[in-house]
Amino acid sequence: MTETLANVAGFIGMACIIFAYAYTTKLERPNPFVQHGVNLAGAVLLTISLLVHMNPASFVLEFFWMAIAIWGLVKAFRARSTGQ
Rank of each mutant, 00 (worst) to 15 (best):
N39F: 02
W65R: 01
F63C: 04
K75D: 12
K26Y: 13
N39P: 01
A57S: 12
H53Y: 15
K26I: 13
T2A: 06
A76F: 09
A57H: 04
V34E: 02
A76S: 12
P32H: 13
A67C: 04
F59E: 02
A20L: 06
F19P: 01
E3M: 05
G83P: 11
Q35W: 08
L73H: 07
F63P: 03
Y21L: 10
N55Q: 08
T25F: 09
Q84T: 14
T82M: 07
T4A: 14
E28M: 08
M1P: 04
V8F: 01
S81P: 01
P30N: 07
F59Q: 04
L61F: 10
A9C: 12
V44N: 03
C16I: 06
Q84N: 09
T2I: 05
L27T: 10
I68L: 15
V60L: 11
T4K: 14
G72F: 13
I18K: 04
M14Q: 11
T82K: 13
T25Y: 09
L5Y: 11
W71D: 06
F59M: 13
S81Y: 11
A69V: 10
F11A: 02
A9F: 15
V34G: 01
K26H: 11
G83Y: 13
M1S: 12
I48D: 00
F19R: 03
L40C: 07
G10L: 02
F33K: 07
G72L: 12
L50K: 06
H53T: 11
I17E: 01
L46W: 00
A67Q: 04
C16G: 07
V60G: 02
F19I: 04
G10D: 04
